[in-house]
Nucleic acid binder design. Structure first.
Length: 359
DNA sequence: AATGATACTCGGC
DNA sequence: TTACGGCCGAGTATCATT
């Protein structure tokens, strides 16, 4: 304890993860003061029946009584008969997200937006900047969020997960590896149900258990990429890079049919509506695409896709009636179930000379 | 064996 | 016990090419 002046190298707290708490529902709370003290859930209504649809986000009051994203609205209403159920307004959420993005960019050296309500950032002074960002978002937008600050991107993200809602957790190298090692493997982003189950079979429950696991076994079980990554995790090699901001790789629109159907004209009609909307985006962003896909959700809720890649990129206004119909007919030939929801996706963006638009 | 393209499925919010 | 949206990127399977 002699050397109290020793500076904990600030360079070790370089990454931030910023996560808006129950983002859509929090925004709607502000617009619906009558929801104060109540469950508020943001919903996507399919238009099929009065209440058919699913929950997108719910506040913590709702989560406490078991309402979750993805749940049918009718199930949620049974759990919270007095809850406030709001139509999703994605445009508004995107606007608010852009404002938060500006606040974060004004404060950090490097920023990558990870989703509509999540950011990763780099700054040598992350430990000082983190609390400040939280305060500015609170003051300027009246919104709460959770921040994690740590020596690695992974540590920052896991710190935020642990601290939410309305939290701030700053970890140095030692506490970061302690937190990660003591976590159950499922808490690590990138480890889902399947990997968790497979790890459980070889006796791995916590990240620290990975230390006792033969790396060769990990590679044999999970393949080179995942196996090596898991071994690195055990050794405390979390990887430091922030990654590059990625361009959007596709544009898709999905909708629910008024009733389930196998009628080609009826389905083609719905596809055209969705196509028009997606093409607006292609036009506005000046994208040409090489891949066209149709997305089918059958009566049993299973999702299927059929896609077609053109030899050359197509401009937004090129007629693709023939290809659409072909994909639909092919699907109907291979599947006997009725279609409940239908979608269209344009992807594999290129400029018209065939150069990729992604870096 | 590694790499890349394509088609398709899964999972998070 | 069922019920059920609309996106996105990541992951996986398969095949051709090197």
């Amino acid at each position: 304890m002699q050397n109290k002046i020793k500076t904990v190298a600030q360079i070790s707290y370089v990454y931030l993860h910023i996560d808006m708490d129950y983002f859509y529902a929090q925004l709607e709370e502000k617009r619906h003061p009558e929801s104060l003290g109540k469950v508020i859930a943001v919903c996507m209504f399919s238009g099929r029946t009065e209440i058919s649809g699913a929950i997108t986000t719910v506040n913590y009051l709702g989560r406490k009584i078991g309402i979750k994203a993805g749940m049918p609205i009718i199930s949620a209403k049974k759990l919270a008969p007095d809850g406030v159920f709001i139509h999703a307004d994605r445009e508004y959420y995107a606007e608010m997200s852009a404002r938060i993005d500006m606040i974060i960019r004004a404060n950090c050296e490097k920023v990558v937006q990870a989703s509509i309500d999540e950011w990763n950032a780099f700054d040598p002074n992350a430990a000082e900047i983190g609390p400040k960002i939280k305060q500015v978002i609170q003051n300027e937008m009246d919104l709460i969020c959770t921040l994690g600050v740590a020596p690695s991107v992974l540590g920052a993200k896991m710190a935020a997960s642990k601290a939410k809602p309305n939290g701030l957790l700053i970890l140095d190298t030692e506490h970061e590896s302690k937190m990660i090692n003591e976590s159950i493997v499922e808490a690590v982003p990138g480890i889902g149900k399947k990997t968790t189950e497979a790890l459980g079979m070889i006796g791995v429950k916590k990240v620290s258990d990975l230390k006792k696991t033969d790396p060769i076994l990990l590679v044999e079980t999970f393949g080179k990429k995942t196996g090596t990554w898991l071994h690195d995790l055990a050794l405390g090699r979390y990887g430091a890079e922030l990654g590059e901001e990625k361009e959007q790789e596709g544009i898709s629109r999905i909708g629910t049919l008024k009733q389930q159907s196998r009628d080609i004209e009826f389905i083609m009609q719905k596809i055209s509506e969705l196509e028009d909307d997606a093409k607006k985006w292609l036009f506005e962003t000046k994208k040409s695409y090489k891949t066209l896909a149709l997305i089918f959700i059958t009566d049993d809720m299973a999702l299927h896709t059929k896609s077609f890649t053109f030899r050359n990129p197509l401009p937004w206004n090129e007629d693709i009636t023939k290809e659409k119909r072909q994909l639909l007919e092919e699907f109907l030939k291979q599947n006997s179930l009725e279609i409940r929801r239908i979608g269209i996706k344009f992807g594999n963006f290129m400029d018209l000379n065939g150069q990729t638009t992604l870096f």
